[in-house]
């Protein structure tokens, strides 16, 4: 029993990250009916930006190098101990790191939409897919050439000194896992409220139902799409930074597998459906954990892909989605 619960916890933590990435896929698909293959790279880029910002705030030698380029940055030298050792400082630092990573990656997402996808809006869907694949290849290799193939993610001292939280029996949860899980829940809840209640969210839903009609109602389609391409990558960036914090490393090709799995999650929940993506993310995470716990981790990816293929074939609408009729 304890074994099962521990696997469940492992799965939910992982699933939270999948859910964050899956939202990006599902948002874009809901509005443009397009699989944004490059979204996996948003996750990766977010991780690298998070890596840079965190280093800038907490790593003395990085601060020193940065100050040589831009003198005012040397102020970070004095804030560094506060950020790395105290609880308040740690929370503040994490907010800054996630904020910067999310905003920059969101802007990158908007830029990509503007230059790579907008010209293709009226082309066949396959063209957009190929373009997205190309963009993914480009971003990966850009990061590889500009930064490096593997970066060791710094662990803030405060976090390193925290002990695992015992729940009951031998069940315990690592502090970083707890942080990831709680943050994911908060973000997912906020996004859900935003889309269903706010004016912009309503515009997004209107656009996804009928672009032309929404345009006639006075909604600026282009800004709604741009907003979508901001929110998705921003959430992906949060997941990417969490990835670095949890696993200690960010690599240029780290996006591929989480990307495919998040896509699977989005499809499982019903692509285009926000709550479906969240549900799918957690489900995939738990399924993977159970599969690798009771069978073997070697076949974990095979199991995920098999789920994906089976769902696409037998219930393309997913768990919460409606089945889509192909129109002529």
């Amino acid at each position: 029993m304890e074994f099962f619960v521990q696997l469940l916890i492992d799965g939910l933590t992982l699933g939270g990250m999948y859910a964050l990435i899956a939202l990006g896929f599902t948002l874009v698909y809901g509005i443009l009916l397009m699989i944004n293959f490059a979204h996996a790279e948003m996750f990766m880029t977010g991780g690298f930006i998070g890596y840079g910002v965190l280093n800038l705030l907490s790593n003395e030698s990085t601060i020193a190098t940065a100050s040589d380029f831009f003198a005012p940055l040397s102020i970070l030298q004095s804030t560094q101990p506060f950020f790395t050792t105290t609880a308040l400082g740690f929370i503040l630092m994490m907010l800054i790191v996630f904020g910067v990573a999310a905003v920059l990656t969101g802007l990158l997402g908007m830029t990509i939409e503007r230059f790579a996808y907008r010209p293709l809006r009226n082309s066949p869907r396959l063209c957009a897919l190929i373009s997205a694949l190309g963009m993914s290849l480009f971003l990966q290799n850009f990061v590889l050439l500009a930064v490096g193939h593997r970066m060791v993610f710094p662990t803030p001292e405060f976090l390193a000194n925290l002990n695992a939280v015992p729940l009951f029996g031998s069940i315990r949860i690592a502090p970083i896992d707890l942080i990831i899980f709680v943050t994911c829940l908060v973000l997912l809840f906020t996004l859900d409220r935003f889309v269903s209640k706010s004016k912009l969210g309503k515009a997004m839903r209107a656009t996804s139902q009928d672009k032309d009609a929404a345009g006639l109602m006075g909604i600026n389609i282009n800004s709604v799409i741009a907003l979508t391409f901001f929110i998705g990558p921003a959430l992906g960036a949060v997941a990417g930074t969490f990835f670095g914090l949890k696993y200690g490393v960010v690599t240029f090709n780290m996006g591929l597998f989480p990307g495919i799995k998040a896509f699977t999650a989005a499809v499982l929940g019903g692509i285009g459906n926000l709550r479906g993506a969240m549900l799918g993310g957690f489900l995939i995470g738990v399924l993977e954990a159970l599969a690798s716990g009771y069978l073997s981790i070697a076949y974990r990816d095979v199991i995920t892909f098999a789920i994906l293929i089976l769902i696409l074939i037998f219930r393309p609408g997913g768990l919460l989605g409606e089945s889509v009729v192909e129109k002529v």
Binding site: L7, F257, E288, S296
Partner: peptide, 15 residues
């Protein structure tokens, strides 16, 4: 047990 290449999450194995 055998882990897959390019795998980063080992939590279930640890469990």
């Amino acid at each position: 047990e055998r882990t897959a290449q390019q795998e980063s999450d080992f939590a279930p194995v640890v469990t």
